[in-house]
């Protein structure tokens, strides 16, 4: 009985102390490199308006951000995919209640070198390229040039979304270059004539070509109406309903003012 009393008292004491020590004016977020430019730009603009609030933003990939939320070291996990059951279960068993907030729409654009004349790929062709069944652009109406497959590393939510929607969970060809960020993919494709890659819309530059997927161009309209098959939402996950400074920040990002920043960064606003 004495043991139970000690445990109960320890619990009550710890909970009281945790409330007393809750940090004010400090928001930490990490995760998706796709969401990173939105989070960074939004944080800068938000801190200008709220100088008493400091927001630190880190990348690492969606999986890393969600794990950090699970371990209680960040208040916001940025993710370019929904949370998996396994991650939800791990969060909940640790007393973390993940709540997701959509902050932007995005489309995963298929990109090729500027000199590549191929303008359209079907989803099946994309799968065949990434699984190694098609290895030369000639088979797709392009020049006789070996295809250099560029993909993302597995901590990436963009990879997981792409793998699910375009590859149906199939294995990426062993010769693929696995890169750690959208920027790295775009740079690699821009500098390699035979390369094909994929990246969030916000990372598209003039140095590469975006190809249509099943004759649909990735755009605000096609992403919102669902006709572009590689469209997705970008999320911020918090522990429980976002409240306090975190709630104010996410609420502001979802507002018209915040969504203007989303658009400035090349992504698609929510409405």
């Amino acid at each position: 009985m004495r043991l139970y009393t000690i445990i109960l008292l320890t619990l009550i004491l710890s909970l009281s102390v945790s409330t007393a020590f809750a940090k004010q004016g400090q928001i930490t977020c990490s995760g998706s490199t796709t969401v990173l430019p939105i989070a960074q730009a939004a944080a800068e603009a938000f801190m200008d308006k709220h100088p008493n609030i400091n927001i630190s933003v880190r990348g690492g990939g969606s999986g890393v951000g969600i794990a950090a939320l699970q371990n209680g070291t960040v208040q916001i996990a940025n993710s370019s995919r929904p949370m998996k059951s396994k991650e939800m279960s791990a969060c909940k068993s640790k007393g973390i209640n993940p709540v997701g907030y959509a902050v932007a729409n995005d489309a995963i654009a298929i990109v090729v070198h500027k000199s590549n004349p191929v303008k359209n790929l079907t989803l099946k062709q994309i799968k065949d390229i990434y699984t190694g069944k098609i290895s030369n652009w000639k088979a797709l109406g392009g020049p006789s040039l070996p295809i250099v497959v560029v993909s993302r590393d597995v901590a990436s939510g963009t990879f997981e979304d792409f793998n699910e929607k375009a590859l149906g969970g199939a294995k990426v060809v062993a010769s693929a270059q696995l890169l750690a960020s959208n920027n790295a993919v775009v740079s690699a494709v821009a500098s390699t004539p035979g390369a094909v890659g994929y990246a969030g819309l916000g990372y598209i530059t003039d140095g590469i070509n975006v190809v249509n997927v099943d004759n649909i161009t990735p755009s605000e309209t096609s992403a919102k109406n669902g006709s572009y098959q590689l469209a997705r939402k970008l999320y911020m996950f918090t522990n429980g309903k976002a409240s306090g400074d975190v709630g104010i920040f996410i609420g502001w990002l979802q507002s018209a003012e915040g969504q203007a920043i989303v658009k400035d960064q090349g992504f698609i606003p929510l409405d």
Partner: peptide
């Protein structure tokens, strides 16, 4: 298992 804040029981 009871996990809340800093306590994991």
């Amino acid at each position: 298992r009871l996990a809340y804040g800093p306590v994991d029981l």
